[in-house]
């Protein structure tokens, strides 16, 4: 897997791209305070940087309507202002805090123009995933010698269905690049996106049960570098449910009808695909007894 060149660079040097969920709706509704969350995350980032001199950390904020790089440990411009070091914040993160503040202000400005009502309060995960992959791609192209990259999604807000295709594309790109996407979901529900992302790319998905111990989860599970993962066991989801749900009644089904055009799934035969509008022919099953079938179907539709 690892090329000869990257072997030269010591094995456990890693590039961690952290996607930080800054969705205001989530943070205003959850039990853990954002400042507390940030404390855990900053401490974790500091720990990761401390593990190896060459470790690199990039933080991308995933907002409600935008996303942006807010920290890159390899850039030289982020050695904190004096002010932040005086109050005992990790010196490195002085600029991070400032950028995060700017980001949130901008994110808020963007939202005003938008219609909020019709959208699920999801974060722009697809955007930040793409940005992370772009960054990693740049690292890959910078030369033979580079740290081993991985992505960690710290997500709390629910999945945004309108991003489905974009997120999936990002996931498959990550799979091709052999970049694992770890995901730590701190929200109330369960994120199908992140589950799938980690499953497909060979990363770790975990949902912490005690949010006040977030730092412990982060260091125990997500601080493990890719090299160590070959001999360390990390928690795996007990099972992945591969069954699909039908689009019409949202039931989980074993057998169903699939639109041959858009692959939408239905639990019963329809005349027309409700997703893409394709008109279906008669199902083969119905051919056998067309009359009775029509009779049977009539009351339903």
């Amino acid at each position: 897997m690892a090329s000869v060149a990257s072997k030269l660079y010591s094995d456990d040097v890693s590039l961690l791209v952290l996607l930080l969920d800054t969705n205001p709706f989530f943070w205003s509704s959850t039990s853990i305070k954002f400042s507390q969350f940030l404390s855990h995350v900053f401490a974790f980032l500091n720990a990761v940087l401390g593990l190896n001199q060459l470790n690199q950390v990039v933080v991308i904020a995933t907002g409600y309507s935008s996303c942006d790089y807010i920290y890159d440990s390899s850039s030289t411009s982020n050695h904190g202002s004096l002010e932040s070091s005086r109050i005992g914040l990790p010196a490195l993160f002085g600029s991070l805090i400032e950028k995060l503040e700017d980001f949130i202000t901008k994110d808020e400005e963007l939202i005003k123009e938008e219609e909020v009502e019709d959208r699920i309060a999801s974060s722009l995960l697809s955007g930040s995933l793409s940005m992370a992959l772009c960054y990693i791609q740049r690292v890959f192209r910078s030369g033979n010698i580079h740290p081993q990259p991985r992505i960690l999604c710290l997500q709390g807000s629910p999945d945004g269905p309108e991003q489905y295709v974009a997120v999936m594309n990002s996931i498959f790109s990550a799979q091709r690049l052999m970049v694992p996407i770890d995901s730590c979901y701190i929200g109330a529900q369960n994120s199908a996106f992140l589950q799938q992302a980690s499953y497909i790319t060979g990363g770790v998905h975990h949902t912490p049960k005690q949010l006040d111990g977030l730092f412990q989860y982060l260091t125990t599970i997500f601080a493990t570098d890719l090299h160590s993962r070959s001999f360390v066991q990390l928690p795996k989801p007990v099972g992945v449910d591969f069954r699909a749900s039908c689009f019409c009644h949202k039931k989980t089904i074993d057998m169903g009808y699939i639109c041959s055009v858009c692959l939408s799934i239905f639990c019963a035969h329809h005349k027309k695909c409700s997703t893409c509008g394709s008109v279906f022919g008669q199902s083969k099953l119905d051919d056998a007894s067309p009359v009775s079938n029509k009779k049977r179907k009539a009351p339903e539709t």
């Binding site: 094995d11 456990d12 720990a47 401390g50 593990l51 190896n52 001199q53 730092f215 412990q216 260091t219 125990t220 601080a223 493990t224 570098d225 090299h227 160590s228 001999f231 360390v232």
Partner: peptide, 21 residues
């Protein structure tokens, strides 16, 4: 302390981190 941590083998780093608190 920090320098010593860096010098440790990867697994030892992990042990130190997870026992930090």
């Amino acid at each position: 302390c920090e320098a010593i941590l860096r010098s440790l083998p990867p697994l030892a780093k992990k042990y130190v981190l997870q026992m930090l608190y």
